[in-house]
Write a protein that binds this DNA or RNA. Structure first.
Lengths: 353, 353
DNA sequence: CTGAAAGCGCTTACAG
DNA sequence: CTGAAAGCGCTTACAG
């Protein structure tokens, strides 16, 4: 026989059964519902499996059992400390439930996401986690037809259409904005990343500007700038901004942008917080240790990742019998050295002479 | 029938075949060897699949075909910009080969790694990529028995036992060390992360110290410190070091540590590079934009990730008929503002008075 | 180029 | 508590 063998040399459930002197069905029960197997039989099967170095074939098993033990996760990119941390925690916590994570990056592109969803469905995932709320009907429909549980992570919204776990990005930006207002700032500049493809960024920007309006602080449109999540580009954008305008504070869409702003200020010799206050959102790894350290809003990545893993596993087992999850985790303002009262910024104009 | 159905509502290959007026075997051929199907038949099948929203079940398919289309990847953690970037690129490139990445973190623990390998094998991976060269025989044996191709990423070594793609961490540290020596530094301190569980760190440390010895520069043992890959801890360690000793340069095991050292110097009022030179390894996202910018050794994460994806896919298809891969990708010294000649450091002692 | 049939490695009612 | 048998959704020689 020239037939291609898939598990060349590796023993299957039949070999384990023969060696243990039981039927394959009993070996299967040993793994899937051990309480239905007598203790003595269990021991023999365990030893037999160990002797042979048996490893289950979950793919074969999943053809009957409906569960593959695999959970999908789609992130925009892993090249983002927050998503990397989230994926790390999510994956670990899934491991504690005997699940494995199948991950893919959509690169902030919803057409790519459709292809990825298809590819994940081809691999029989038991559930899927997505970032944020911007998804195509096509992708969502493919999942709902197959009854695959979907969980939206990261951004909490009251009006979410799918179950979600996250912090409110609206609240996060409001905390940052209110902090700057409390310090007396009125000439505030805003740096946000693309709000078209990113609902987190959109919520943050809307919220920051709404807070300004609410408190009667006018915002000039040329103080609102676009900036990708890239420290180098943020530094360039901020350098140009600081040379042309005289903001007393800059509210940044996330910490990566804020880092760039701090470096720009440092390079220009603008003192933070005496001449300029800077806030971020996210509380990335470096932010606490920079000099000056960054005032920011902490987003609970670890807690989201853990809770998400627990939740998606529960959803996959209960299917539709679970109440819909909408968990809002708290975010906190972390006041550090990069913000101060506006009084300290009197010297600002001097540097321009 | 109360039987649990796995793909409730979703059409299978049989439905597609019926609608297209062909046999299931022909639909299967359409996907797996389209050239064996007549063009007209292809069109009808394609339309039928589209109409029904058919999605293949690769798990069922893999029972025969030996291929699951899934590649495993085990990293120590994703909470590391280099591994996150590597995973991101690897995953994307696998996507272009119609493969999906199954990723898990071993948290720098080799026992955990064994469990992960088992879990990945249960899911029928076509190949697996690991970080570095420190792996248990148990894990490697489970893979070799099943003939699963293994590829070691990140750290190139001549004496590698398994196929590998990476940069030489020995060379990386040598470049950094030689650069400091060329600038005239002799009082050099070293900060490296745990070398027991991390062959990259081990190679870097050995190499840096060997370079010193080669050039006849003595290194006092209290100038060699342990430090995890954590900017905050690095800052603390460096602060204490700088207050007690007077190194003219600090060679750091990676950029994360170097960032902490730069912040420590900044907080202490020590001028870089005038009073202190600092080097990193890795060229992380922030390093080019910091003030002062960091001199470091760039490791080609993107190229490793891409080449790794191409290679593991080729290996999985060719099995043992491929020559063993040992690709050494170049790393480059990037000289920036954080290093300078030792002459500039004359003022060093002043600050201690 | 296409179809009928066997079978991949498991799991699950069913019957004991 | 255990076994024999059917079957999960596909793929693959084999035969036409």
């Amino acid at each position: 026989m020239n037939r291609v063998r898939s598990r060349k040399g590796a023993p299957g459930i039949v070999e384990v059964a023969i060696r243990a002197g039981v039927s394959p069905a009993t070996v299967s029960r040993f793994y899937n519902s051990p309480d239905k197997v007598r203790a003595g039989t269990r021991l023999r099967i365990e030893q037999s499996a160990k002797d042979l170095g048996y490893i289950r074939d979950r793919m074969a098993g999943s053809m009957h059992s409906r569960f593959s033990g695999t959970i999908g996760f789609i992130v925009p990119t892993l090249n983002n400390a927050m998503f990397a941390e989230l994926a790390d925690t999510f994956s670990r916590q899934l491991g504690s439930h005997e699940r494995t994570m199948l991950i893919a990056c959509n690169n902030y592109d919803l057409d790519t996401e459709i292809d990825i969803v298809r590819s994940l469905l081809e691999r029989r995932i038991d559930g899927i986690a997505l970032i944020g709320h911007d998804h195509t009907d096509t992708a969502l429909h493919m999942l709902s037809v197959r009854d695959i549980p979907v969980l939206s992570l990261w951004n909490y919204r009251e009006d979410a259409k799918i179950p979600s776990i996250g912090a409110s990005n609206t609240q996060a930006a409001e905390l940052a904005a209110q902090h700057l207002l409390d310090l007396g700032h009125k000439r505030i500049a805003f740096l946000f990343s693309d709000t078209v493809i990113n609902d987190r960024s959109r919520d943050r920007k809307m919220s920051a500007l709404a807070t300004m309006k609410q408190q009667g602080v006018a915002v000039c449109s040329d103080m609102i700038l676009d900036c990708p999540y890239n420290t180098g580009i943020a530094k360039t954008v901020a350098t140009s901004l600081l040379q042309q305008k005289q903001p007393t504070a800059i509210l940044c869409g996330n910490d990566v942008i804020a880092h760039g702003v701090l470096y720009a200020a440092l390079a220009l010799g603008i003192k933070v917080p005496e001449q300029l206050s800077v806030t971020g959102i996210g509380d990335f790894a470096n932010s606490a240790d920079m000099v000056p350290s960054l005032t920011t809003v902490r987003l609970p990545a670890k807690r989201i990742g853990q809770l998400a893993a627990d939740t998606i596993v529960a959803m996959s087992m209960a299917r539709n019998q679970l109440p819909t999850t909408h968990s809002k985790l708290e975010c906190n303002l972390i006041v550090r050295e990069s913000t101060g009262t506006v009084n300290k910024t009197k010297q600002l104009d001097k540097r321009l002479k």
